[in-house]
Design a protein around this nucleic acid. Structure first.
Lengths: 212, 212
DNA sequence: GTAGTGTGACTGAGCGCTCGTTCATAATTG
DNA sequence: CAATTATGAACGAGCGCTCAGTCACACTAC
């Protein structure tokens, strides 16, 4: 399995020292995320990214070949963080319906906390060159795959009614997207529901399908 | 109720003849949608919009004050078309669960056909000036409102178990977003499901909540 | 009719400026 | 010293938008 670090290293750099590259790029990402969230990718200039990182523009271009490189680094970093959060959530070994409910709760919590970051990916993935857009979309699939596995495990335990493979996959997508929905409709939903309300109601919704 | 036409007229123009303005703007929108879908808003130039419309750039700016004006016109037009589709779907008067199933089927059909347009709104709404972004989001809410009403009507008929107001609203949002999900995950979902499969499975999912 | 005048849609060269990127040079490190 | 890392002025392509001017047509005056 190619690690996320390996993906990052695919971006060419003038700088020889790999640790330095890793550190500098982390700095760049940290600075760029905020800027992209605040103003969007296209309205953020490379000079602003450099300034926010504490670099000269020249130095920025030692660690990155283009502005799009920065966007890709940002997207990768966000996915890594989301995936880490979800994996943490899936470590807990409850059983049956409780396991599913707990999984949803944790995942929606991640979405809640990473609101702006998830939104950013929805809005700016299209600005990536095709080669990297593909990678970002693969990340999205892998994330949904985690839910597929978790669901399959719960069902194999006999704690939920059987579902065919097709249904499991779709339920996993639904869970993923209903988490995202909180981020891109929050401006409206938050008028009517707290995140707790939202989790409770949606959990009921999802369990409904699985043999209420 | 302010009509969509009224919204459009809010945009200033140098041209006196209102019918001409309407016709020209329709031309502009038609040309711009394709370009925006193909290359995105930021990578489309005003010159390209003008050329695709068959206008000189000067003329374009007689009907529009800025490039963002064009984006707003495009977003409005798309929402109008979607809303028309949904309203058509809601005219059919079936009963109870069948009414709900039919509604979902029609709406998902609209999403399927307007795939690219819905995606465009997801990706470019953020590029609008705040004043207009607000309007576009209001359109989104109004659309969901149509589902709220339809659900309330069905429930009032006693054909579905009672739901409190809060749940109805959330189910309406879920239907809206699960329709959108087909558009922004289609690149993946279509490998496993036809649109028919998708509609069938998701309808089961949604009816599941409402007392399977 | 026709010459004169006014109106308003339309044209497109070009202005002013921003942006992503480069590169000659300087500083630092070992 | 040599190699590496860092600087920031300079470049030039490309952008949104303007505006002086053209042109077709309608209206008036005689």
């Amino acid at each position: 399995m190619p690690t996320a670090t390996a993906s990052k290293t695919d971006i060419e750099t003038q700088v020889k020292n790999p640790e330095l590259v890793a550190r500098r790029r982390r700095q760049i990402v940290d600075a760029a995320v905020s800027l992209f969230i605040e103003k969007g990718f296209h309205k953020t200039t490379t000079r602003q990214i450099a300034a926010a990182t504490g670099f000269s523009i020249g130095l920025l271009y030692e660690y990155v070949r283009s502005k799009e490189d920065v966007l890709y680094l940002v997207c990768e970093a966000i996915h890594q963080e989301v995936e880490r959060g979800v994996n943490d959530a899936l470590q807990r070994h409850e059983r049956g319906r409780e396991a599913l409910a707990a999984m949803i709760r944790e995942y929606f919590g991640v979405c809640h906390r990473m609101n702006d970051h998830i939104l950013l990916i929805y809005q700016e993935t299209q600005s990536l060159p095709p080669h990297w857009r593909k990678r970002v979309l693969e990340n999205e699939v892998r994330l949904t795959g985690l839910f597929v596995n978790a669901l399959a495990r719960i069902i194999a335990h006999g704690d939920l009614p059987n579902l065919n493979e097709q249904s499991i996959e779709l339920v996993a997508h639904n869970i993923t997207v209903l988490g995202h929905m909180w981020t891109f409709r929050r401006w409206f939903l938050a008028r009517h529901y707290s995140i707790e309300d939202y989790i409770t109601l949606q959990t009921g919704f999802i369990l409904g399908l699985l043999g209420g």
